[in-house]
Computed example of a mutant assay.
Amino acid sequence: MFRHVGKGRTLVHNLQLASLLSLVAGIVNVSGIFALQTLTTNVTGHFAYFADEIAQNHFAQAWVFLLYIIAFLFGAFSSNFFIEFTSRHDFKFGAALPISIEVFILTAIAFLGPETVKANGNLIACGLLYAMGLQNALVTSLSNSVVRTTHLTGLFTDLGIELSKVIFRREYSEQKQLISSIKLRLTIIAFFFSGCIVGGLVYFFQGMLSLLLAAGILVMGWVYAYIKFQILMMKRKLHH
């Protein structure tokens, strides 16, 4: 699910990637809300907060929201930069570096104590937004903009459009494509929601260690993809 790009991807690849990373995003989302009382998986709301603070002449706080936006943007920039760089050098796993950085960030923040989190809330929020920028750009690049996992606004918009299209009679191929797209979007929504529920329960008992769950899911997903690839390569060698 991490190696195939663009036209080489199938619905199964996208479903696997969507379910894995949406679950992670849901956990990070709820952990950020509970611990920092701010959005840590997308920047849509931060634009509104930024404008509100500017209107009230609270420029110091406005700069904080601007930093949140820049952190997410820099995460997206970094992710695609790493993918482009590795692809030019013929590395087989271009997604490895963005995933590794995300795992490192989530793990490092997970082990911070409550007092440290409270004292460095803005910095930690920037770290989580950078990690989610990495993830969102990674999944967008791999899926050719078909999958996004860190926010749901666009997903619900697309889902509403596609559900309305299904009602009207269309060619079989178009109906099949619509059903596949709806299935993918429902998967993302379901796993994001599940991540929020599971992450919230873990946070209730373990605090920011809930982020370790998100990091662990990423590692297990990568290991699964790597082992599956190695088995596939072994089968190809045996057939030759």
Score class of each variant (00 low, 15 high):
120 N>V: 03
116 T>V: 11
117 V>Y: 02
124 I>V: 15
102 E>M: 06
87 S>A: 15
123 L>T: 15
93 F>Y: 13
97 L>N: 05
114 P>W: 03
109 I>L: 11
110 A>Y: 07
92 K>C: 04
114 P>G: 04
87 S>W: 07
81 F>Q: 06
118 K>D: 10
124 I>K: 03
117 V>Q: 02
96 A>V: 11
116 T>H: 08
83 I>P: 02
122 N>V: 06
116 T>R: 00
108 A>C: 10
111 F>M: 14
121 G>K: 07
123 L>D: 12
91 F>T: 01
122 N>W: 02
109 I>F: 02
119 A>F: 07
116 T>G: 06
117 V>T: 11
123 L>Y: 13
98 P>W: 04
121 G>R: 05
101 I>F: 07
102 E>H: 05
92 K>Q: 13
93 F>A: 08
108 A>R: 08
101 I>K: 00
101 I>Y: 03
90 D>R: 13
119 A>E: 14
104 F>I: 14
84 E>L: 11
107 T>D: 09
117 V>M: 13
97 L>R: 04
109 I>K: 02
119 A>H: 13
117 V>S: 02
123 L>K: 08
100 S>Q: 04
103 V>E: 09
107 T>M: 05
86 T>V: 05
107 T>W: 07
109 I>M: 04
109 I>Q: 02
123 L>S: 15
94 G>K: 03
91 F>Q: 05
117 V>G: 02
94 G>Y: 01
114 P>F: 08
80 N>M: 09
81 F>Y: 14
83 I>N: 06
97 L>P: 01
107 T>L: 08
112 L>H: 09
119 A>R: 14
124 I>D: 03
99 I>L: 11
105 I>H: 04
85 F>A: 07
123 L>C: 05
110 A>W: 10
99 I>Y: 00
86 T>N: 12
105 I>M: 12
110 A>T: 10
118 K>Y: 05
98 P>Q: 07
100 S>A: 15
113 G>W: 01
89 H>C: 03
81 F>C: 03
96 A>K: 08
124 I>H: 03
96 A>C: 08
84 E>W: 03
119 A>W: 03
87 S>G: 09
86 T>P: 00
82 F>E: 03
99 I>T: 07
83 I>H: 08
81 F>W: 10
116 T>L: 07
114 P>S: 07
88 R>Y: 05
88 R>P: 02
95 A>D: 02
88 R>H: 10
95 A>W: 00
111 F>C: 14
107 T>A: 11
108 A>N: 12
99 I>Q: 00
123 L>N: 11
124 I>L: 11
109 I>G: 01
117 V>D: 00
86 T>G: 07
105 I>Q: 04
81 F>R: 08
96 A>M: 13
94 G>M: 08
120 N>S: 12
96 A>E: 06
85 F>Y: 15
117 V>L: 14
102 E>D: 02
